[in-house]
Nucleic acid binder design. Sequence first.
DNA 1: ACGCTTTTGTGAACGAATGCACAAAGTCAC
DNA 2: GTGACTTTGTGCATTCGTTCACAAAAGCGT
Lengths: 229, 229
Amino acid sequence: MTADPSARRGIPDATVARLPEYLRALTGFAERGITSVSSEELAAASGVRSAKLRKDLSHLGSYGVRGVGYEVDHLAYQISRELGLTQDWPVAIVGMGNLGHALAAYSGFATRGFRVVALLDQDEALHGQQIAGLPVRPMDTLDALVAEEGLAIGVIATPAGSAQDVCDQLVAAGVSSILNFAPCVLVVPDGVDVRKVDLSTELQILAFHEQRKALASAALGPVAKGVAK
Amino acid sequence: MTADPSARRGIPDATVARLPEYLRALTGFAERGITSVSSEELAAASGVRSAKLRKDLSHLGSYGVRGVGYEVDHLAYQISRELGLTQDWPVAIVGMGNLGHALAAYSGFATRGFRVVALLDQDEALHGQQIAGLPVRPMDTLDALVAEEGLAIGVIATPAGSAQDVCDQLVAAGVSSILNFAPCVLVVPDGVDVRKVDLSTELQILAFHEQRKALASAALGPVAKGVAK
DNA sequence: ACGCTTTTGTGAACGAATGCACAAAGTCAC
DNA sequence: GTGACTTTGTGCATTCGTTCACAAAAGCGT
Ligand SMILES: NC(=O)c1ccc[n+]([C@@H]2O[C@H](COP(=O)([O-])OP(=O)(O)OC[C@H]3O[C@@H](n4cnc5c(N)ncnc54)[C@H](O)[C@@H]3O)[C@@H](O)[C@H]2O)c1
Ligand SMILES: NC(=O)c1ccc[n+]([C@@H]2O[C@H](COP(=O)([O-])OP(=O)(O)OC[C@H]3O[C@@H](n4cnc5c(N)ncnc54)[C@H](O)[C@@H]3O)[C@@H](O)[C@H]2O)c1
C-alpha cells in the first residue's frame, strides 16, 4: 500500500535535486525570524511554481497545515533529515591546484554538515604544506582516511587526464560518492555515485541560447536591440 | 512539414545539455587521430546509450553514414555550429575572491571560443591589480564592455548577498546570459538566461544517495561492508 | 457552533524524455 | 553488379516529470 506515510522509498531524482534549494530558502526565512511560510512564498523564494513545490514536499510526508502553511524550522529539519544532513559527512579534496585551493578555502562546505577532513595531491612538493589550516597529504593515505574518518565523499579537482586514475584510487579505498570538477566522464562500478560540475558545459549551453536569441531578433528585424518578444 | 532537414527549431533541452559532452568526446577521438566513429563508440565515450546519442544527433540533421558511422571532424563542426561555438564569446567575471581568481586563471574557457575580456570587482583596493594578465576593473565599466566588446555572457563569483545586485547591473548593461556560482536564486527579466553552478547542492544530492546506500546495506545485515546489491 | 476563508495534498491530464526494435540505407567483398 | 553485412535514423511504447484544478482539512471570526 502506498497509503503508508513512511512509504517514501523512491523520491524522484528531480525532487531530490530541488530539496537543497528549498532548504536554503527556508534557512533564509529562519534568519529573518519568519516561523511560517506558505507554499506560494517558499516556491517564490526557491524559483519554482507552488504546485511543484507541494508535490515535491508531499513525497517526504505531510508536514504542512492546511489553511496556514509550513512551519519553517520543522520543514527545514525534515528536509535535512531526508537529505542525510543530520549526520556529519567527511569530505576529501584531491588535487590542490587553482581550483583545489579555492575549494579548500571555501566556507560553504561547513554550512551543511560537510567537513573537509583531508587535502590530497600527487605532487610531493606540496606534501606537508598547509592550505586553509590543513596539510596536503600524499595519495597513499586514502585507505586510512576511509577507515579512520569514515570518509565517503571525494572531490576531484585534478586535470582531466588524471581524473579517472584518481577516481579509481578513491573507489579502491572505499569512497562511494564522487564530485568531479574535471571535464571528463568517469567510469565507476555499480554502487558508486558520480556527479559532475562542469563550467565549460554550462557556458556552452548558455552560448546555444544566446545564439538562438541573436538569430531570433535578427530574423524579425536587424534594428531591434532589446529583448525579443 | 517537419520533413525539412533544417527544421531544427526546438532542440530538446535535454539534448542541448548533452551536446557539449559529445563534442568533448569527439575532440578526444580527433586528438588520437581517429577520423570515424560509430554511435556505439561515441556513446560509450560520452557515458550514454547509443540509442539516446542517435536520437540526439538526429535533432540537428542527418550527419551519419549508415553502415559506417560519423566522420569525427564533420560531426564536431556541426555540433559546434549548433551550440554557437563557431563564433567568439566575450565573457566577464565579476567578483575576484578565491573563486574568481581560480576562474580567471582557468584555461578551460579559451578551449571553446570563450574569451575572458574583463575581471570586475566592487573592491577599490583590487582595481588595477593584474590577475592572469588582466586588470581588475570597477563595476561602472560594464556598459562600455557591452558596447565595445560585445559582451553577452557574465559570470557571477561574488558572495550570495551581492549576487542579485550584481546580476541587476549585468542585465542593465545588456548582458543576457549569466553563469551564477553564488548559492542563491536570481530573478531576471524574460530574455535573460541564468544557469547555476552549485557545489553545495551537488554535495547534498550525493549525501542523499550515500545515506540511502548506508540504510540499504544496514537493512540487509549490518555485517555487509561492500556495495549493496 | 458554524459557515467562510485559506491553503494543503493529490488525482488526473498532459508533455517531455528515454528505451526498444527494426526498416531503410549505405558499404564492401567478390 | 549483387548480395551479405553493418549501422543509422525513427516510429512506437513506456516511463518520468510537470501542470492543472479541486476536494479535503484546518483556522478564524462571529
Ligand atoms: N581553475 C578553475 O577555475 C576550474 C574551473 C572549472 C573546472 N576546472 C577543472 O578542475 C581541474 C583542476 O583545475 P586547476 O585549475 O586547479 O588545475 P591545476 O593544474 O592548477 O591543479 C591540478 C592539481 O592536481 C594535481 N594532480 C595531478 N594529477 C594528480 C593525480 N594523479 N593525483 C593527485 N593529484 C594530482 C596536481 O599536482 C595539481 O596540484 C581541471 O580538470 C580543470 O579543468 C578548473
Ligand atoms: N571558493 C569556492 O570554492 C566556491 C565554491 C563554490 C561556490 N562559491 C561561491 O562563489 C562565491 C564567491 O566565493 P569566494 O570564495 O570567491 O568569495 P570571496 O569572499 O573570496 O570573494 C568575493 C568577491 O566578490 C567581491 N564583491 C562583493 N560584492 C560585490 C559587488 N556587489 N560587486 C562586485 N564585486 C563584489 C568582493 O570584493 C570579493 O572580491 C560565493 O557566493 C561562494 O558561495 C565559492
